[in-house]
């Protein structure tokens, strides 16, 4: 990792943080991606429009950035395709049962000093580190 990687990482982080803060004020909700996306499947909320618009913005911004900057388009999958649906199911169940993901708990919650989000973030980081250790260092 070199200086430009660090600068791009911090700059990207600031875009994520400020984008989340704007979405918090405009929507009046904590705009964690798992909650914004998951609640699309609960039409009783009747507020699908802002969720769809925010997520379309996310997808548009990501794709445009990948098209403009070759470094942003770097992509290397890390799991066999057969494992992907299992990972997706676990992420879907875990984020909704635990009430947040890397953005809702990790960015907005930790950024607000919320104790439960700090605990959740430490727990999912630890679980992810343990999982990667088991998968990538077999026999260790």
């Amino acid at each position: 990792m070199n200086t430009s990687t660090i600068l791009l990482a911090v700059a990207g982080g600031v875009l994520i943080g400020v984008g989340s803060a704007i979405a918090t004020v405009v929507s009046g909700r904590i705009p964690g991606i798992s909650g914004v996306f998951g609640r699309l499947f609960r039409p009783k909320y009747g507020d699908s429009l802002w969720r769809v618009v925010f997520l379309c913005g996310l997808m548009f911004g990501a794709v445009m950035t990948m098209l403009l900057f070759p470094s942003a388009a770097e992509y290397r999958p890390m799991a066999p395709l057969a494992w992907i649906p299992i990972a997706g199911l676990l992420v879907g169940i875990g984020t909704r049962v635990g009430g947040g993901c890397t953005s809702g708990h990790g960015v907005c919650g930790v950024g607000s000093g919320a104790i439960d989000s700090i605990v959740a973030t430490m727990v999912f980081m630890a679980a992810a580190i343990a999982t990667v250790f088991v998968i990538h260092h077999p026999g260790a």
Partner: peptide
């Protein structure tokens, strides 16, 4: 909200 989402997505890809 679209702009905020765009910043978020751009930040993810850029970083």
């Amino acid at each position: 909200l679209f702009v905020a989402g765009g910043m978020f997505g751009s930040g993810l890809a850029m970083s």
